[in-house]
Design a protein around this nucleic acid. Structure first.
Lengths: 223, 223
DNA sequence: TCTGCAAAAGATGTCGACAATATAGCAAAT
DNA sequence: ATTTGCTATATTGTCGACATCTTTTGCAGA
């Protein structure tokens, strides 16, 4: 996954992808400071390259920069999660509606095929599905919207932050098969070219997903 | 306007704001190439500063960059307008709904006061209203949503591109008073804490606005 | 011992130079 | 005459050094 026409060309590209991956997967801790000199030795590139990578991460809302002070990785907070998922609900709901309207029959057939593969994955080794398959599913719907602004905002913008919450807070077991059923219903609505229903189902799907993560994030009384 | 806590600190900030202004207002033409060396002499700063400014403009979708080739200002196209306004409708509709829910009574009172000022402006010198007042109105609703992701995406992200379309394609005369009435109804819905209605009215308001610009953009047969 | 200023250390911001890549122009061959 | 391949030029990408700002440290005075 993650090979969605995103091919690194320059050193800044590579560093950006690597650093983003390290942050999303928690190798670089949430809330930690990003020292330019430190990172430049760690990744073996000049500070200029690091600065460009950090600038790009800032526009994804993965890091926050203050002038003359430096950059920090964002902290994962319940408020941040709510804000993020509200936006995501709105944008991906819209993507589903547009996808029902704009995807070609061939693309919809492909999407159905993907679903069948996922069905096998869930039966065999259920947990892997969530990270790779779910992202792939959502990517296809987003691309199916054919709205370039929407695609850019979601894929280059907020999606990696979504992944950061999901990877670092984990997702519970029983929801895997439930989520798969929700995907099936969404695809069915798209097959029927029913944009309104697709949007509504996608919004609920994302809402459930948010509640699921929220349960992991909110009850931190035992800490 | 445009003084929304956005204060330039570094040279890169100043250059970014200036270059963005020049592009939005058409001083730097849409579709033109942005040469780094040329801009660095023009704005009297080093190429590193120019590069940072261009990077930031790229994340606003105001310029497009290709590796080892360079950056170009985006072209204003009917498709781009539709894509942009679809997203805007969704996000600002959401902002209106959240504003009805999250703005304080004091903030709503302020908003009403702003509306009265605009009412005078329309009576006196109607045309000025559109550029300054309308933006200000929308800014307040966006900020009133209290959703930081939404605020960042709209204000740092797509709003300057919206302004670019509006400034460069102009807006017709009779719509000024119509738009003002629409603003009044939206504020009324927010006063009543009716989020659903506020969202619907905002979406229609933006839809009308899009149609208005589209009329200027599409019929280019006489060229 | 505590407060406050000052100097030093370390960070980010900016710059000019060099390296790598793409484009344009010209020459040669078909 | 057209196309192909090379060369020259110009632009972008990367680097290390210097300037400026922030933060910390340490000393002096109350």
């Amino acid at each position: 996954m993650q090979n969605l026409t995103e091919q690194p060309i320059t050193a800044a590209d590579k560093t950006f992808f690597q650093l983003r991956k390290d942050i999303v997967e928690g190798v670089v801790l949430a809330g930690s400071k990003l020292s330019e000199t430190e990172l430049s030795t760690k990744y073996g590139v000049s500070r200029a390259v690091i600065r460009e990578a950090i600038n790009r991460l800032e526009s994804c809302h993965i890091v926050e920069r203050k002038a003359n002070v430096g950059a920090r990785v964002v902290s994962l907070s319940p408020e941040g999660l709510v804000d993020l998922y509200q936006v995501r609900e709105s944008l991906e709901g819209m993507a589903a509606r547009l996808a029902a309207q704009n995807m070609t029959d061939a693309e919809i057939a492909d999407l159905n095929a993907l679903l069948n593969v996922h069905s096998e994955d869930v039966k065999n080794h259920g947990s892997y599905y969530q990270e790779a398959g779910d992202v792939d599913f959502h990517y296809r719907i987003i691309l199916g919207s054919k709205n370039n602004h929407l695609i850019a905002m979601l894929i280059n913008g907020i999606y990696h932050l979504v992944r950061m919450y999901r990877v670092q807070l984990g997702m519970s077991g029983p929801r895997v098969s439930t989520a798969f059923d929700e995907h099936k219903h969404i695809v069915q609505a798209i097959c029927n070219r029913d944009g309104e229903l697709a949007e509504m189902l996608m919004r609920r799907h994302i809402l459930y997903s948010k509640n699921n993560i929220q349960r992991k994030l909110t009850p931190q009384r035992e800490a």
